[in-house]
């Protein structure tokens, strides 16, 4: 009876519908349990694998939690100085115009120390993809306040909550960059639910297609969690993200 098939038989007879992409190495990820970086890494590599351009892709790792991205992504990688990933990507893309060049950055890297490089690379309309993981905190160094930290959000350097009068508003860098004529595609997504993961993957694919068609800079912001920085469990941090981060950083296409 086919109704009473055991899982072992399904594994034997059935079709494989999902497995770890070959463009991710077998190294165990160094991220905390439940961190959105793992999903963001995986869907980026899946897109490159689907497009069949894994051997033509060059990634730029930032400084931050994802500094070791070159250990996990099984493609050519370069690690850049803090915040300088778009500048390094500019150089690589101009030297190898046919390669698929992308930067993978966090909010401390892209929106704080690397604001200058990011804005000017986008303003020049460099043909690169910027994947920007925004978790509203400096995760690697112990949960300090970042430019994207929400109003009233407690971090180790804002123990009474972020005070807008003293430290300013959470910076909406993707909206800012969308204003620049060099940017062809600016969008914001999240990876905490299966449906949102699928949408994010589509957006990343569109960004790499824009790069292939030489349209300009594409920036994909991924609103993610930092459960150890926020001092919550992974499930709770995703709920908190939905309640607090998404009203400030609404999902959807901003340009393109």
């Amino acid at each position: 009876m086919s109704e009473n098939i055991t899982p072992e038989e399904i594994i034997k007879k059935g079709t494989l519908v999902f497995e770890k992409t070959k463009l991710m190495t077998d190294a165990h990820l160094s991220y905390c349990p439940g961190c959105g970086h793992g999903v963001a890494h995986r869907i980026t590599m899946e897109v490159l694998e689907e497009m069949g351009v894994g051997d033509q892709a060059i990634g730029i790792a930032p400084v931050g939690c994802s500094v070791l991205a070159y250990d996990f992504m099984n493609i050519d990688m370069q690690q850049a100085a803090h915040g300088r990933a778009p500048a390094v990507a500019t150089g690589i893309k101009r030297l190898y115009p046919e390669k698929y060049v992308f930067t993978y950055q966090g909010d401390g890297d892209l929106a704080a120390i690397g604001t200058n490089e990011t804005i000017h690379a986008c303003n020049r309309g460099e043909n690169i993809v910027i994947i920007f993981v925004n978790n509203g905190i400096y995760g690697m160094t112990g949960g300090q306040m970042a430019p994207t930290t929400l109003e009233g959000m407690v971090s180790s350097t804002s123990p009474y909550g972020r005070d807008l009068g003293m430290t300013g508003h959470p910076i909406k860098i993707t909206e800012m960059l969308a204003m620049l004529p060099g940017v062809c595609y600016a969008t914001r997504h999240a990876v905490h639910k299966p449906g949102l993961v699928r949408k994010t993957k589509k957006a990343i694919k569109k960004a790499f297609e824009n790069q292939r068609d030489k349209k300009g800079t594409s920036i994909i912001e991924i609103v993610s969690n930092c459960n150890s920085g926020w001092k919550m469990t992974p499930v709770k941090s995703n709920e908190w993200l939905e309640e607090n981060m998404l009203p400030v950083f609404p999902l959807g296409d901003i340009k393109g």
Binding site: P7, T15, L29, P33, R42
Partner: peptide, 27 residues
Amino acid sequence: HGACIACMSCSLVCPDMCITVYRYKPQ
């Protein structure tokens, strides 16, 4: 395990790529 419908939701949200999914459609 018998309730699995191979929707891949678990593998899509898994940050550590631990889950492999198989699908079987009886004739």
